[in-house]
Design a protein around this nucleic acid. Sequence first.
DNA 1: GACGGCATGTAAGTCGTTACATGATTTG
DNA 2: CAAATCATGTAACGACTTACATGCCGTC
Lengths: 177, 177
Amino acid sequence: MEYAFNGVTPVILGFLDFGSRSGYDIKNAVDKSTRFFWAASYGQIYPELRRLEKSGLIEGESAPRGGRRRTVYTITDAGREALLRWLRAPELTREVRDEGMLKLFFAGALEPEEALGLLQAKRRQHEEALRRLRAIELDTPESEGLPYVVLQGGLAIHESIVEWCSKMERRLGKGGS
Amino acid sequence: MEYAFNGVTPVILGFLDFGSRSGYDIKNAVDKSTRFFWAASYGQIYPELRRLEKSGLIEGESAPRGGRRRTVYTITDAGREALLRWLRAPELTREVRDEGMLKLFFAGALEPEEALGLLQAKRRQHEEALRRLRAIELDTPESEGLPYVVLQGGLAIHESIVEWCSKMERRLGKGGS
DNA sequence: GACGGCATGTAAGTCGTTACATGATTTG
DNA sequence: CAAATCATGTAACGACTTACATGCCGTC
């Protein structure tokens, strides 16, 4: 039987393939990297670590720091194979839930200045995202590797949204629709 | 008491503000427009129509076509106010789940040619999205209004992703990381 | 008469977030 | 010594998808 992946499975296997870590470490790694396009919570991570260990895709070892209990997990050969199978599978799910876009879509119910305000708010949101991504860019030494490629993608997306906002703000500001 | 919005609430109120419709009509409208950034299923729409009607934000009227029963809903003043309150609220949730990005992030476990294939697959996915958006652009007459602005945003995003893919494909193809 | 589109609806199940609980350690 | 951080975990809840069920209508 193939191991049934859920949302957090590839994240755990992927980060453990970079190196052994605790659940807490995985959560921190996610929050500094993939969460921009794939989030994960403790409520997913800890139960899934159990499940993966039971199936032999990872192995946990007690590694307390001082008096704090701590379990560090290591990916197994079976786990690496499962990760590769997932990487090679053709599915590329992509889902977006963007309330700013939705509001803009229905903003005809508002006064024009308010619709303009919505665009400005959206621009600010993505400018903020750009600041965060650029901060990450600065404190990661390597300017190569796939994670860096992905970071460049994030920058490209947010930059294009900011540009589109600016353009549309000018249009709406001039009374054009 | 404020009406508690869920994911599908603003979609229903927004489309009914454009004009009276049945649940089926709303689903079709969503699938041709907002679903690129905000999807909705029948499993959400029909129960929420009931709930909205019970609270007086919309009103349903039987409007059969031939022997097919059909209920057309109309937004009320209370419904319009709720829509405006939502439009004016500062929250702008934005969530993305992009499996292509996640795979690329962990693609170091693959051979370089396979990682390149992942990038190409992602590019094709967004080229396909562009085709769909451009088809919508062509068969909608008005080239103004907020929905048109949002459509332009969708085009800008997918175009920037396609460009980023092309650029990174060239980089990886040359043996760069 | 089969198939596709119109039209409404529900049940089951999955998925994910949030809040909470516990307790140790480090830092200001 | 208080607050932040390390570290693990669970329970409750809400959200959403999928599959299914029903039945009418038009057309090939």
